[in-house]
Amino acid sequence: MSLNTVTAPAAVEITLDEAKSLLARAVEERGAGYTYQMLTIDEQSLCAYFDPKTKAPSCIVGQVLAYKGVTYDDLAGQEVNTYANIEALNDQGVVKVDNDTQALLEIAQSEQDAGMPWGRAVEEALATYEGRAQAYEEDGYDDPSLAYWF
Rank of each mutant, 00 (worst) to 15 (best):
E28M: 05
E29R: 12
R30F: 00
R30C: 00
G33R: 08
G33P: 00
G33M: 01
Y34Q: 06
Y34C: 03
T35C: 09
T35P: 04
T35H: 06
Y36C: 11
Y36L: 04
Q37N: 10
L39Y: 05
I41V: 15
D42M: 15
Q44M: 09
Q44S: 08
S45Q: 14
S45G: 09
L46Q: 12
A48Y: 03
A48H: 04
F50S: 00
D51F: 09
P52L: 07
K53N: 14
K53F: 14
T54P: 00
A56F: 10
P57L: 06
P57E: 06
S58K: 02
S58W: 01
C59H: 07
V61E: 03
G62Y: 03
G62M: 02
V64F: 00
L65D: 03
L65M: 15
A66R: 01
A66L: 01
Y67C: 07
K68G: 06
G69Q: 10
G69F: 08
V70Y: 00
T71Q: 12
D73P: 04
D74N: 14
D74Q: 13
Q78S: 14
Q78V: 09
Q78G: 14
E79T: 13
V80I: 14
N81T: 09
N85C: 12
E87K: 10
E87Q: 13
E87V: 12
E87F: 12
L89Q: 03
L89C: 06
L89I: 06
Q92S: 15
G93A: 12
G93C: 09
G93W: 12
V95G: 03
V95Q: 08
K96Q: 14
V97L: 11
V97I: 13
N99G: 05
D100T: 08
D100N: 13
T101P: 06
L104F: 04
L105E: 05
I107Y: 00
I107C: 00
A108L: 05
S110N: 05
E111P: 00
Q112I: 07
Q112V: 12
Q112S: 14
